[in-house]
């Protein structure tokens, strides 16, 4: 190829033109960033730990962008510089300074900086943290709240409620395979490893609802293993804590009573606990106050009578291979009664 001296690379030889790649990457980056805004987003942090993570992300992103642009500029210069002009790019000083000293210094500094941030997140919380235990199951989350003495006050599932402004220490573990507990708005990922208990600490700054997701592939329904974190004012949280510690609400109407009786006679209690009734199973989520939760089936369905009915009759179709059988055996009225009973368990 014989290049024109004044126009070393012509438009025709560079099929995408000069401007398109730049424009395209800017648009893509923008779109990606807008996706990072919301209830499951590392870039809208709501806890000191998550803020550190977001900070690291920005520093890395901006730093990498600056270095990338500098390197590209040098490359471009090397290509279009008149012969004999760009020799300094190959000088020993630049190679040793830019290729060796700069990376060593930058990477070491980054390492120290990130290790420090990680230390902040796993360090035992100061003050009087709320302590919870989260246990990963295929494919849902068991959440236990400990009282001041470290005993289990009550068990819940698929939802973590925390008071704002108070640190929370979650001891995470697993009942089966490796899962990973991840609420991007509040904390980094922490793996749930068989035979181990890992701690993660976070503190919600503002009230709000955030979404968490299992971040380690754990089988067929890994993608449908999510949960919600609800951060609320301390007084509200205290009232909630108090209420959750109590037994399930007694049925108030004949229809709901019928629902409870069907729930018990159908054997739901073999897998589910409803405190205050003979149902004491431990295979599935504790349902004592299931009606008060944001979602069911590990964050994948809204929680109301319709979705409860759908789940009971079709759990294997909604979430194939999960451990709950489909109970496609009820007449319409009976199904509605069971769902109404569960909904009433606020």
């Amino acid at each position: 190829m014989k290049a024109d001296k004044r126009h070393p690379i012509t438009k025709a030889e560079c099929p995408f033109g000069f401007r398109w790649p730049v424009a395209a990457s800017l648009v893509t980056a923008f779109l990606l960033l807008t996706g990072c805004d919301g209830i499951q987003a590392a870039l809208t942090p709501n806890s000191p730990g998550a803020e550190r993570i977001a900070e690291i992300a920005w520093i890395l992103f901006i730093g990498a962008a600056v270095i990338f642009i500098a390197v590209m500029a040098l490359t471009l210069y090397a290509m279009i510089a008149r012969p004999g002009r760009g020799g300094w790019i190959g000088s020993g000083a630049l190679i040793i300074g830019g290729g060796l000293i700069f990376p060593v210094v930058t990477l070491s500094a980054l390492l120290i900086y990130t290790l420090d941030a990680a230390g902040v997140m796993t360090a035992p919380a100061e003050g009087n943290p709320l302590r919870i235990e989260v246990i990963g199951h295929m494919w849902w989350w068991e959440v236990r709240y400990l009282d001041e003495d470290g005993n289990v006050a009550f068990v819940s599932a698929n939802e973590v409620r925390v008071p704002v402004g108070r640190p929370v220490t979650a001891a995470v573990s697993t009942a089966d395979v490796i899962h990973s507990f991840w609420v991007p708005n509040l904390a980094g990922k922490i793996d749930m490893i068989p035979g181990r208990v890992n701690d993660v600490t976070f503190q919600a700054e503002e009230p709000g609802t955030f979404r968490g997701q299992c971040a380690e592939y754990c089988g067929a329904q890994h993608a449908k293993m999510a949960f919600f974190v609800v951060a609320e004012e301390p007084e509200r949280f205290a009232r909630w804590f108090e209420h959750q510690s109590g037994p399930a609400r007694e049925p108030q109407t004949p229809f709901i009573t019928r629902g409870r009786d069907l729930f018990l006679s159908s054997g739901c209690g073999a897998c589910h606990t409803v405190r205050g009734t003979p149902a004491a199973g431990r295979i599935g989520p504790d349902l004592t106050h299931v009606g008060s939760r944001v979602s069911i089936a590990a964050g994948i369905l809204d929680n109301h009578i319709g979705t409860l009915e759908a789940w009971i009759a079709n759990s294997q179709r909604i979430k194939p291979e999960n451990r709950m059988p489909s109970f496609d055996v009820f007449e319409g009225e009976d199904l509605r009664a069971i769902a109404a009973y569960l909904e009433s368990l606020k």
Binding site: A175, S265, G267, G269, A270, G281, R282
Partner: peptide, 27 residues
């Protein structure tokens, strides 16, 4: 008791003997 670590529920709830709550007669 079943085998909770395996996801196996207690058979007694649905098949007896002497379940805490009488199971559905179709069981």
């Amino acid at each position: 008791n079943g085998a909770p670590e395996q996801g196996v529920p207690a058979c007694v709830t649905c098949h007896g003997p002497s379940a805490a709550v009488a199971p559905d007669p179709v069981y």
